[in-house]
Write a protein that binds this DNA or RNA. Structure first.
Lengths: 98, 98
DNA sequence: TCGCTAATTAGTCTTTTCGCTAATTAGAGT
DNA sequence: ACTCTAATTAGCGAAAAGACTAATTAGCGA
């Protein structure tokens, strides 16, 4: 679902999560501590990112390790670049209307 | 202002507008005719894209010609690529070795 | 000025998103 | 089983987004 990807990218906190995960996988709590929002709020942001397949969750005992899903992020970037260049990438972005 | 860009990209109709404008500038009404939504609704979408500076409007007598602002779109794509972290691609070798 | 067309803005409503607190699940350790 | 910690889910209210109809602006031509 490409639409959910761009929707997920629409929130600054979620983009910042991706920026943090870019440097390496992190635990949910560790991640949440970086933000001012409450922990449940961050958990929801993570859920949105996960639903868009932009990140993956991996349980390690008591805690959950998140890592960025680079290929999906690449897809989004490619889709954007498709809007610029005149190469094919035409119906890349037309997804079912909501 | 970057946030408004990603927010603008969050709606499929708006991405499709950009896809149409990629092939060349178009009149507002001509553009609106491509969609099933009402004309005012499309006008709003165009306003959102314009507020994000993703498109520019140019009045030609009675009608308004829209064209895509490629550089801003490039900025967004670059921002996405920045989240992937391919500042230099050398890290890929490390990961492959693991 | 009047009428016509193109497009936006106003106003209202419904749906979605966001962020909080409180409650709940899940696992590890005792 | 009990408890502590990690994290999510539930539930609520506020804010924003989306889409519609109706009203309005802007420009052209007779």
């Amino acid at each position: 679902m490409r639409n959910s990807i761009f929707k997920a990218l629409a929130h600054p906190a979620r983009r910042q999560v991706l920026a943090l995960l870019r440097k390496g996988p992190r635990l949910a709590g560790d991640l949440a501590a970086e933000f001012e929002s409450s922990w449940p709020t961050m958990s929801r942001h993570l859920a949105v990112l996960k639903a868009a397949d932009l990140i993956t969750a991996e349980r390690h005992g008591n805690q959950i390790l998140y890592r960025v899903n680079t290929s999906v992020l690449e897809d989004a970037a490619t889709a954007l670049l498709g809007l610029i260049g005149s190469d094919n990438g035409d119906d890349e972005l037309k997804e079912a209307a909501e």
